[in-house]
Computed example of a mutant assay.
Amino acid sequence: MPRPSKGPRLGGGPAHERLLLSNLAIALITHKAITTTETKAKRLQPLADRLVTFGKRGDLHARRRALSIIPDKQAVYELFDQIAPLVNERAGGYTRITKTGYRKGDNAPMAVIELVLEPVVSKRKPVTPKAAAAASAATPAATAAPSDEPVVTDAEASVDEAAGGSDEPTEVESTDAVETSEPTPAEDETPAATEVEADAEKAAEPDSK
């Protein structure tokens, strides 16, 4: 006889084990929570999660696969039409096992396996009004809407003050464009050299008198 891949064998053989897990799955879907031994609950958990995955898929092929595992039309209807919409936002972990102690008599460990149908709660922290106000105050000034008032530079303000605050526009000439009329050093030296040469020629001429 082949050995099961996960956990101990339930029942007398593989067929008996499949039938036992099928009946447990039908009871879990119908009642949403059942009390059984810890071993049976651990073997039922992956099968129940697989059936809920079929229910979330919701197509005809998924329904036929679910019917092949649990041959109960009422249980399949509850799985696809009632349970699947409640866990549509949940990514996994559709069942929960809670240990309840030991059974009186044979001292077998007992557990409750149930479907997790609570709405999914986001782990993100809610934004408080103070945090929102701090975030809005921290935004850069460049994102603000531009004002319609003209921007006055420092040069224009100094010109207005020199003009005495008159309303008439004042033209400002650039100092870079002003040309100086002072002669260059070469031009200053040229007339002086010419006068020295003329005096030398007069001195060299013989006195005609």
Rank of each mutant, 00 (worst) to 15 (best):
K104Y: 00
A132I: 14
L115D: 08
T190L: 04
D59F: 08
Q74G: 04
D154N: 11
V152I: 09
E171Q: 12
A198M: 09
T139M: 09
A203M: 11
A177Q: 04
D176L: 09
R64Y: 06
E168W: 06
A66L: 07
A186Q: 15
R90Q: 07
L28C: 13
N23P: 05
D188E: 13
A163C: 08
T53G: 07
I29N: 03
P4T: 15
I26W: 08
R63K: 12
I97N: 04
T98K: 11
G164C: 09
E168Q: 10
T35P: 07
T128I: 02
A200M: 05
T35Y: 10
T30D: 01
A48V: 09
I83T: 13
I29H: 07
P126T: 12
E38Q: 08
G92E: 03
M1G: 09
L44K: 12
R3S: 05
A145H: 06
L19Q: 10
T143N: 13
A48S: 11
G101D: 03
A131F: 00
S136G: 12
S158R: 15
G12Y: 10
S181D: 04
K6N: 04
P150L: 14
G105H: 05
P109F: 06
T143K: 15
A204N: 08
P185H: 11
K56M: 01
T98H: 07
K99G: 03
G58S: 11
E179C: 01
M110T: 10
V76G: 08
T153M: 00
E168A: 12
G92K: 12
V52R: 07
T139F: 00
A177P: 00
E182F: 01
V151A: 05
S208K: 14
K130S: 03
D154M: 08
S147K: 15
G164Q: 11
A162D: 11
K56D: 01
T98Q: 09
D207W: 04
P206A: 11
A84T: 10
P2C: 10
T35G: 14
D207K: 06
D106M: 06
V112G: 03
K209N: 02
D207G: 06
A198R: 13
V121A: 07
L24S: 10
H31I: 04
I29K: 10
I34T: 12
H31A: 06
S208T: 12
E149D: 11
K130N: 04
L79V: 03
L115T: 13
L20W: 04
L117N: 09
S136P: 08
T35Q: 15
T95P: 02
A33C: 02
V76F: 02
I69Y: 02
